[in-house]
Design a protein around this nucleic acid. Sequence first.
DNA 1: CGTCACTTTGAGCCCTCTCAAGGAGTGTGG
DNA 2: CCACACTCCTTGAGAGGGCTCAAAGTGACG
Lengths: 233, 233
Amino acid sequence: MSGPTADNDIFLDAFDGAPIRELAPREVLVAAGAPAEQVFNIVDGMLMLSRTGSDGRRQVLSFLGRDNFVGFTTTDRYSFTVQAVTPARVACCLRTAFDQRLERHPDAERAFRQMTFRVLEDMLDMIYSLGQRTALERLAVFLLYLRHARRLAGGIADDAAGLDDIALPMTREDIADFLGLQKETVSRSFGQLEERGLVRRLDSHRVQIAALESLRDLAGVVDFAAPRRLARR
Amino acid sequence: MSGPTADNDIFLDAFDGAPIRELAPREVLVAAGAPAEQVFNIVDGMLMLSRTGSDGRRQVLSFLGRDNFVGFTTTDRYSFTVQAVTPARVACCLRTAFDQRLERHPDAERAFRQMTFRVLEDMLDMIYSLGQRTALERLAVFLLYLRHARRLAGGIADDAAGLDDIALPMTREDIADFLGLQKETVSRSFGQLEERGLVRRLDSHRVQIAALESLRDLAGVVDFAAPRRLARR
DNA sequence: CGTCACTTTGAGCCCTCTCAAGGAGTGTGG
DNA sequence: CCACACTCCTTGAGAGGGCTCAAAGTGACG
């Protein structure tokens, strides 16, 4: 659970020479409830972090790509499940080894804290989405989020060709559980986005953004407007 | 945005002798978009952290009590609003001073990272709530969350007398915006909880938990069950 | 005692969910 | 190479939880 950034380099060498594990789609990397002994760095592919309730309801907490970290907890057991979405490779590192590394390198410690904070801020965005946005808006945000993620991963410019072709390696149900919707609603919302001319469905796992600005309008930028009610008296 | 813990002590002295600011209910401590120059420690009272979208929709991100920290960002401007719920007092510290403190004290740095991580984990719980739970369940979780917060703040035992009397200093709309509901739905859900005998409404800002275990059942403990679909082949 | 803000309750509607059927793509075996 | 099975996606119809609009109730304060 973490985000990729420029100063990742400080940790990346913690995974130098670390054993690489290969994962097939849907394969579980860490199971909720298992002892949290390792931390991981995604070398390639896409992983998915989720939490499942006792009645089977599942919330996908994030989709993670290259150079993201997973497996950190404050407790001694994982409280979430991590599994592969696409074929993936992850570097595995003992948690104790990683912790020691942070202790020895104050720079790394600080950079790691900063990274944790950025992830926290992403989670706040997600909370806003789940609490306030409609199905259509959530899907729009999701597409922009995938576009943004690819842009970051590739270090590409905002207007680079092909950037508006979005790959959706996960299933509709994965998307639904991420957005707090049902898979049918996700399907229908894709339909609506297409009807409105915002996207084109190339096939069920690829969409093309047809009207980026309109999609951004729909997603709605969270701005820094004043609170609705100011202090009185 | 942070949580109170035993090892807060490491930071608390960062606020020793710091100027104290008094806040009236609804008064704004930090406005979204303002330069992020200070960080705060809540000495007394309850604060509320929220984010408002361009169309006025507001998401309350958390309610914060004594010994919680607020005001941290990775950016140079606050991306959220913080305002008082009850009359409150906060200690104010320059962000640069706090950062320097962390740099000089590796122990503090580490403890702070741990704290950030715990907050992150709380946010993951919230994401599960907003994405998967019904209105009634969210309200049940909310009451248990308030009970838990008071228990932590007071260092009280789980069966201490009076612990089941929950104060609700915030408005119904604040609760609604926290839970991703409308204020009317919050009211009706309180009604349903009372009908079912789970709580008693003492007055509009106080409820008593009448059946703690049933309320916990309703809230539903997130367990570490296996994911719905395991890897095949 | 009137005003004002907040809460509660009611009625009707809409967005999303549920249940169900049909379609599309993929892999397997005949 | 085709038929079949299987999974996933789409679409439809109907139901329901939560939302919107509206009005009455409650408590605080001047």
